[in-house]
Computed example of a mutant assay.
Amino acid sequence: MRAGKGTDEMEEQAGTSFLGLVVDAVVSLVVNLGLGFWHIIYALTHPGLWLDWSDKESLLRFVYYGGSKELLFVFLDVVIVLSVIGFVHRPFLWALVRGLEKIANTTGRVAAWFGLLMVLQQIIVVFLQSIFRQGEISISPFGGGFTESVGWFSESLKFENALVVALCVSYAFVQGSHVRVDLIYAGVKHRTKRAIDMFGSLFFMLPVALLTWMYAWFFLWRHLITPKVSASDALDRMLMKARIVKWNVETVSFSANGFNGYFLFKILMLCFLSLVILQALAFFYRSFLEFVEGEESAGKYLDKDTLGEGEETFEGTY
């Protein structure tokens, strides 16, 4: 009897403890969402506290908040407000979708030209290095000279390739160019597809991108300033470094006279994540609108590239 009574008490305590954790989590969520609006107002009314980089404390505040939970809740507040407005007034949500997809398409279409630049640059490097035995390349279209070794231009192809990948990712998503492994999607109804799309963008695409941002942000700044900062640093601890912090931009190359702008790869990571986050929102909103409005709205306002009439086979739309 005593053993049974003790077990019941333990189960009751466990249930109470779990309920308390849930309540605490909900309260914390509500409080942080509320504080997010305050942080937006405070940041906009006090830009000098985080944009005046001549003040080292201001620089470190920018570094801290750029990958903080405070920024996360500010982002969530903005998304919630836009979503509520859009759910009530669907034309606004369509305009938001078109705007976000416009960003993806424009960025991708511009960045795609670097693919051509890579080809031309590789040809020039091969000719100058292997045939003419030149060690340097000078570029001065407007009088200002820019001279680097052939090895520098050869290694910079890696950056240009990364630039195409990072900046064309959401563009390729909008165009439907990503490889897709389909097990059940093609055989289900229209609204089921849209429900799957909403779930995937909201519970997979967006959280992974946001989590990666919070670590990639500090990964970038660890290669821009010293002493190194960490995602685990509290604001007070980070501000204590203000007196000794200084710029230390990574310019190390993997070979003598090689490409020395490897910190740009870290910036590209954040550009990549920004585009993925925006596209996740656009995809969620588009899926929601197509779910609500039915099959006739599929592909509505979608700006897809075309090779012209009769070339659908080569566009992958067959």
Score class of each variant (00 low, 15 high):
residue 2 R to Q: 11
residue 6 G to N: 13
residue 10 M to Q: 15
residue 12 E to T: 01
residue 12 E to I: 02
residue 17 S to K: 10
residue 25 A to K: 13
residue 27 V to D: 04
residue 33 L to E: 11
residue 40 I to T: 09
residue 48 G to N: 06
residue 49 L to G: 04
residue 49 L to Y: 10
residue 53 W to A: 05
residue 54 S to D: 04
residue 68 S to N: 13
residue 69 K to V: 11
residue 79 V to W: 01
residue 83 S to K: 01
residue 84 V to H: 01
residue 90 R to P: 01
residue 90 R to F: 01
residue 97 V to L: 04
residue 101 E to M: 12
residue 107 T to S: 12
residue 109 R to A: 02
residue 111 A to Q: 04
residue 114 F to M: 09
residue 119 V to W: 00
residue 130 S to D: 15
residue 136 E to L: 07
residue 138 S to H: 05
residue 138 S to C: 07
residue 146 F to V: 14
residue 149 S to D: 05
residue 150 V to K: 00
residue 154 S to T: 15
residue 157 L to K: 01
residue 157 L to Q: 15
residue 164 V to C: 04
residue 167 L to T: 06
residue 170 S to M: 02
residue 184 I to V: 09
residue 190 H to K: 02
residue 192 T to E: 03
residue 196 I to V: 09
residue 198 M to P: 02
residue 199 F to Y: 08
residue 199 F to D: 07
residue 207 P to C: 13
residue 207 P to E: 12
residue 208 V to A: 15
residue 215 Y to N: 09
residue 216 A to C: 11
residue 217 W to A: 07
residue 219 F to K: 03
residue 224 L to W: 05
residue 237 R to A: 13
residue 243 R to H: 07
residue 258 G to S: 07
residue 262 Y to V: 14
residue 262 Y to T: 13
residue 262 Y to S: 14
residue 265 F to H: 12
residue 279 Q to L: 05
residue 287 S to L: 03
residue 288 F to W: 11
residue 290 E to R: 00
residue 299 G to A: 03
